[in-house]
Write a protein that binds this DNA or RNA. Sequence first.
DNA 1: ATCGTACATTAGCATGACCT
DNA 2: AGGTCATGCTAATGTACGAT
Length: 557
Amino acid sequence: TDLKTVTLNQVQTFETSDKILKNAKFDKEVSCRLAGISDLIAAEGKYHLKCYARFLRNTQKIPQEDQEKDKAEQLHAGNQSCDDELRNDAIEDIDLDVELLSWLYRVAVKVHHDVKSAPTHGCIGNINQESVEDIIPRSLFILVSLLCTGSQEEENEADTDLKTLVLSVCQDIVFVASRGRKLTPKHLGLGLTLHQATRSKELVQLLHSAGHSISYETVLRMDNSSANDVLVRYKENGNVFVPRNFTESTASYTRYAVDNMDINEETLSGMGTFHATQVAAFRRKGDDELPMDIRIIPKSARRLDLEVPQLHQLSQISLENKKPEAVLEEPVEEGWYKPIQEKIDESYKKELAWILGRLVHQQPELQKIPGWSGFNQLLSSNQHQVTMVGPLPIVNAPAHEYETLWTVILRCKAMTRLRNGKYTVITMDEGLYNKAKMLQWAKMEEFKNVVVVLGGFHTQMTLSKVIGKYLESSGISDIWAESEVFGETTAVNILKGKLWNRVVRAHKLSYEALWRVHQGFQHGDFVTKETKNAFNQIADDQALEHVNKSGKVAGGL
DNA sequence: ATCGTACATTAGCATGACCT
DNA sequence: AGGTCATGCTAATGTACGAT
């Protein structure tokens, strides 16, 4: 395609991103380029409208052809049997309408009976397809699928969307048949989510009267059931709240993460804005453990069973001197921070293999080697372990206050003790880590078994800031701006270490671009005809121009 | 005439008692 | 088990009034 005349469109919606990634499977070249990317909006993917349309056409052809063939075969078979039946009926000379009605009635009675005797979805939570399939009788599902597709298709992979819709209709039928008594995942989930998101009684009632959601009153009762569950468990454990999916297994190690949470911050008047603190507990999933949702038995009461005022109270703490002395852990061994030479060598080899492979082609269209991230992802064979997350009740106070932080740390300590752990490891972002360290230095005794960790993301950001400082006046931000990879302000911000995604992208591109320049020098591209001493004779702007060009080549990939 | 403030009214929600 | 109703609370809205 002629790159100059066609405008580049930015991927802006999730649908587009999904569509491209989904269809990329059928296009070898695109899948290679997109290796390692799971979100094209974040990756700032760009496309030409024409290429996009052609891409969609080419990739959608393949699966559709298969489907059509299947359908044609099945239709053929279906029609035949249908005709046969009709012909047989005609021979027996029975009134077809009456016969049909009679069969309809029998089917309805059978399915209705199945629906009536189906089990209820007996918990708040587990809003997923498996639990839907548990409560929908087989006969109802088959009937509705037949109504929707008109043919006796077995479930295949491509029809998962249709299956979801069919199950949705089935749940409506179960809900209506029980006059709203039998809770289904759909009705529970829609009602609770809608109320949580909008706080609007009217919207919930609207959906309820259309038969798509539990009633507003039921929503309140479900909320109350969850609240009661928290209170009861809080009391049972001696004023410590432990999430339900953390009670059974005490084997795995628990870690905590704390962050502040701003609600309704974007209102003009600041009305309804508040700052709270959220804590989450993490642990590795046991080998034989099934992934578990938090289940709560719904109750019809709308009163809180117990009053537990301590749940919202903050623990007091006073700091005598405002700025405590920094205390270093002793001893610090240099070996802890020493890199492993083997790993470095291995990474270096990989890196070299990648860049040499990339440098073979000068035009983005011909590039067959994926980007740096994709390359490493393809080579990596890491099997990541699954983590279980348990939310702790939010603390209704801003996280940067010492009392809030202290309360949070006390709660984590209590939960660790209950799970028979010794050390409490708490991860925080930069702002909170600061405060927590201050607290720790002021209260060494209480913090003996508490380990405060700066989160991995913020550690990386600090590193990127250091790199930015190092490159500050090298003119690299000009290159980024000139080669139109980033805007000017963005380029400056990248050097300051902000905008993590872009920092990574910028350095990946610069790395490749500089390698291309280096290659150019080696091949003697820069030698002007008059001089023999190549490097010194090139004008600055000309060299910069070449770097820009290389940046564009890298950026287009 | 316009603006800002204080006060009054109202809509909408949560709550708990009660009803079917 | 789910619906209805009276009540209290809060934020939003309306109104009066004084200052400029």
